[in-house]
Simulated scan of single mutants.
Amino acid sequence: MNKKIQLQDLGNKDYKSTWEYQEELFKDIVDLKIKNRREELDLPTPNYLLFVEHPHVYTLGKSGDLENLLLNEKQLEAKGATFYKINRGGDITYHGPGQIVGYPILDLENFFTDIHKYLRFLEEAIILTLKEYGLECGRSEGETGVWLGVGTPFARKICALGVRASRWVTMHGFALNVNVDLGYFDNIIPCGIRGKAVTSLQVELGVEKVDEEEVKAKILKHLTRLFEAEFIQE
């Protein structure tokens, strides 16, 4: 089992081109697994983690409801935002500047074959990261992602999750609101959940700006321990 994960920080990159790049890496891993099975080989499959920040974009998962997007085409254009229907789970979400997006493209057969455990580990890495900033976060029953104030009238989501998996290979991932403009969430019903707010690390800490590189380093530290992995910087 190959527990090395190649880390690529793509900086600020267009959503569509990043999605296409994910698909390319995903397909290469799946193709190698098929080749191994057909030819009775044992070639190691690679793993990747992409960090990226997107320009303003709304994405709708395959089971999502288009009515959760509250903007028409002209209004999207006025906001400088784009919109895509994509092949991950979950409903609608927003990505934009000041948000840390992580796309793990892993062959889970290198780690464990349990999608539920995989999602919980991604959440746990974020929960542990935010704990280092003095924030008590948790999970909301029946809803993926990471929340503050669970069980209170002030429940608010700080990190969204949505993944796709095939042949135990994953893509898509998590989006953590760090210094993001939360006003963009007013244009959607986030994740199709009414009556619950969205927040950011910057708002919760009451600071002008959070060091995003520091946050990424903390996320990596916790992913390393949870997945018993080794990250290799590209």
Rank of each mutant, 00 (worst) to 15 (best):
residue 1 M to L: 11
residue 16 K to M: 11
residue 17 S to K: 14
residue 17 S to Y: 01
residue 20 E to W: 08
residue 21 Y to F: 15
residue 22 Q to H: 12
residue 32 L to A: 14
residue 38 R to S: 13
residue 45 T to M: 02
residue 50 L to Q: 06
residue 51 F to I: 10
residue 56 H to L: 08
residue 60 L to F: 08
residue 63 S to V: 12
residue 67 E to M: 09
residue 72 N to F: 11
residue 72 N to L: 09
residue 72 N to H: 10
residue 84 Y to T: 01
residue 85 K to S: 12
residue 87 N to E: 15
residue 91 D to W: 07
residue 92 I to P: 02
residue 93 T to N: 00
residue 100 I to P: 01
residue 104 P to Q: 10
residue 107 D to N: 15
residue 109 E to F: 04
residue 110 N to R: 02
residue 113 T to H: 09
residue 117 K to R: 15
residue 118 Y to A: 00
residue 120 R to T: 11
residue 134 G to M: 10
residue 137 C to N: 01
residue 137 C to Y: 01
residue 138 G to D: 04
residue 139 R to V: 07
residue 149 G to Y: 04
residue 151 G to V: 09
residue 152 T to Q: 11
residue 157 K to Y: 01
residue 158 I to H: 00
residue 164 R to S: 08
residue 165 A to E: 04
residue 168 W to D: 05
residue 173 G to H: 03
residue 182 L to F: 07
residue 184 Y to H: 14
residue 186 D to G: 11
residue 200 S to K: 02
residue 212 E to M: 15
residue 214 E to C: 09
residue 214 E to V: 00
residue 215 V to I: 14
residue 215 V to G: 04
residue 218 K to I: 13
residue 223 L to E: 05
residue 228 E to S: 14
residue 228 E to Q: 14
residue 230 E to Y: 00
residue 232 I to Q: 14
residue 232 I to W: 03
residue 232 I to G: 04
residue 233 Q to L: 13
